[in-house]
Simulated scan of single mutants.
Amino acid sequence: MDLVLSPGLLAALFGVALLAGFIDTIAGGGGLLTLPALLLAQVPPVSALATNKLQSSFGSLTAALTMLRRGIVKVDDIRGLVFSSLVGSVFGTVLVQFVDPGILVLLIPLILVLIALYFTLVPTAGLEETTARMSRRKYCFTLAPLIGFYDGFLGPGTGSFFAFSKIWFRGRNLLGATGAAKVMNCASNIASLVVFVAGGKVIWSLGAAMIGGQILGALIGSHTMIRHGSRIIRPLVVGMCLLMAASYLWKNLV
Rank of each mutant, 00 (worst) to 15 (best):
E128S: 06
L35G: 02
T51Y: 03
L216C: 11
S47G: 14
L38S: 08
F141P: 01
F196V: 03
A27P: 14
L32I: 13
S188T: 12
G126P: 04
K138I: 10
R172A: 06
L243M: 08
A187W: 00
L127N: 13
I167V: 15
P145I: 03
G88E: 05
A27M: 08
L219T: 12
A209W: 02
A17W: 02
N252P: 02
Y118A: 11
G31N: 15
V194Q: 10
V82S: 00
A63V: 07
G102C: 02
M1R: 15
A64V: 03
K201R: 15
T224W: 06
A132R: 05
A12Q: 14
F119G: 10
I190Q: 05
A125G: 10
G8N: 13
I233L: 09
N52E: 13
G171R: 07
S230T: 15
K182W: 04
I111H: 00
F14R: 06
N252K: 11
S188F: 10
A144Q: 04
A37V: 02
G239M: 12
R136C: 10
I226E: 04
W250Y: 15
A12M: 04
A63W: 02
G8P: 09
I26G: 11
T224R: 06
L242S: 11
A144M: 09
A191W: 06
F164C: 01
L242H: 08
F149P: 13
T62M: 00
F196I: 00
V87T: 08
